[in-house]
Amino acid sequence: MGDRISSAEMARAAEAARLEIAAAEKEDFLEAINGLFAFVRRQWETLNTEAVTPTAYVRNLKSVCRPDVPRASLPRETALANAPDAADGCFRVPKIIENQ
């Protein structure tokens, strides 16, 4: 904790989130993101949380289950109605090729 995020590290994260960062906005993005990291570090500078258990869920609910009972699925036309591209009752996506 403490180092700046490098441009390469930001690019890797953007890639993992499938986000493009245009060349023109790269600088701004890097500045802003390092600003966020700096903000967080500053705020927690003096805080020791070693002995604290993390909270993932704020309500203490456990083992919430439903019975294995079928519910109507969507009619196929409805399921596909919002699809940007569909064919043969399926969602259609462009060619899947190797990375880069």
């Binding site: 294995d68 079928p70 519910r71 699925s73 196929r76 043969d88 009752g89 399926c90």
Partner: peptide
């Protein structure tokens, strides 16, 4: 199981594409 892990759609094998979705 009769239905999917997080919804009530059927798990039956071999149905027409995208007819067991929600």
């Amino acid at each position: 199981t009769g239905t999917k892990i997080f919804c009530g759609c059927s798990t039956a094998f071999g149905a027409a594409p995208n007819t067991q979705v929600c």
